[in-house]
C-alpha cells in the first residue's frame, strides 16, 4: 500500500529571525469553518461540545485546546478539535485545515512590521489580545489575531512563500530603524 507524506505550508521557510523579531509556523490542529445559520443554537452547541461560545465580531473565544475565531460575516473558525456532529444542525461545517498557512509574529516591532503590510489599526490601545480582524497583508487575504505573545497570521496556503517574503522585507526595514 502507498503512503502519502504530508507537507507543511511553510516547509523550511520558517522560522525567521530578524532583529529581535521572530516569525514561526504554527500548527493549530483542525480548522473548521462554521457557516452560521442559527447563532444562538450554534453558540449553545459549541459551548456544550467544545466549551467555547460563538465569538462576537472581531473577537475570539478560547477554552482548553479549543479556540473559536470570528472569521467574517456569519462565519467563525473552530480551531483545534474535530467539530462535534451536533454543530451541523446550526451551521455549515467546512474543513479548511489545509487551506490556511498559519504563522505567529513576535517581538518588539511586530506592530510596526504589520503597519507596513496591512491597512488596519493594530495599536495596542485598540487591538488587544484576543482581538481579531480580517484584512489584507499586502494583497493577501488574511486574518490577524493579537495573541498574548504577538500576532497570529493566517493567509492562503498557496501564498505562504509570499507571506514570508513580505514579512522578511518589512522586518528588515523595521529592524534597520531600531
Amino acid at each position: 500500500m502507498v503512503e502519502l507524506k504530508a507537507q507543511t505550508p511553510f516547509g523550511e521557510l520558517l522560522p525567521l529571525h530578524i532583529g529581535d523579531m521572530t516569525v514561526a509556523a504554527r500548527d493549530l490542529g483542525q480548522l473548521t469553518v462554521l457557516g452560521v445559520f442559527d447563532r444562538a443554537g450554534l453558540s449553545k452547541a459549541l459551548e456544550a461540545a467544545h466549551g467555547v461560545a460563538l465569538p462576537e465580531p472581531l473577537q475570539s473565544t478560547a477554552e482548553g485546546d479549543a479556540q473559536c475565531l470570528w472569521f467574517g460575516r456569519e462565519e467563525a473558525l473552530l480551531v483545534g478539535p474535530t467539530p462535534d456532529e451536533a454543530l451541523a444542525k446550526h451551521a455549515a461545517l467546512v474543513d479548511v485545515s489545509d487551506g490556511w498557512a498559519v504563522a505567529e509574529l513576535q517581538g518588539p516591532g511586530a506592530e510596526d512590521v504589520l503597519a507596513r503590510l496591512a491597512p488596519v489599526d493594530l495599536r495596542d490601545s485598540v487591538f488587544e489580545p484576543g482581538d481579531i480582524l480580517r484584512s489584507q497583508l499586502r494583497d493577501m487575504p488574511a486574518s490577524i489575531t493579537r495573541t498574548e505573545t504577538g500576532f497570529l497570521l493566517l493567509v492562503y496556503r498557496s501564498m505562504a512563500a509570499t507571506l514570508v517574503q513580505e514579512l522578511r522585507r518589512a522586518m528588515e526595514a523595521v529592524a534597520s530603524r531600531r
Binding site: A91, D95, S97, D98, G99
Partner: peptide, 19 residues
C-alpha cells in the same frame, strides 16, 4: 445570497486552497 436573497439559508466557503 446577501443582496437578492438574504432569506436563504446557504453558506459559501472557498475551499480552493484546501484541496
Amino acid at each position: 445570497t446577501q443582496c437578492l436573497h438574504p432569506e436563504w439559508q446557504v453558506h459559501l466557503t472557498s475551499v480552493t486552497e484546501q484541496w
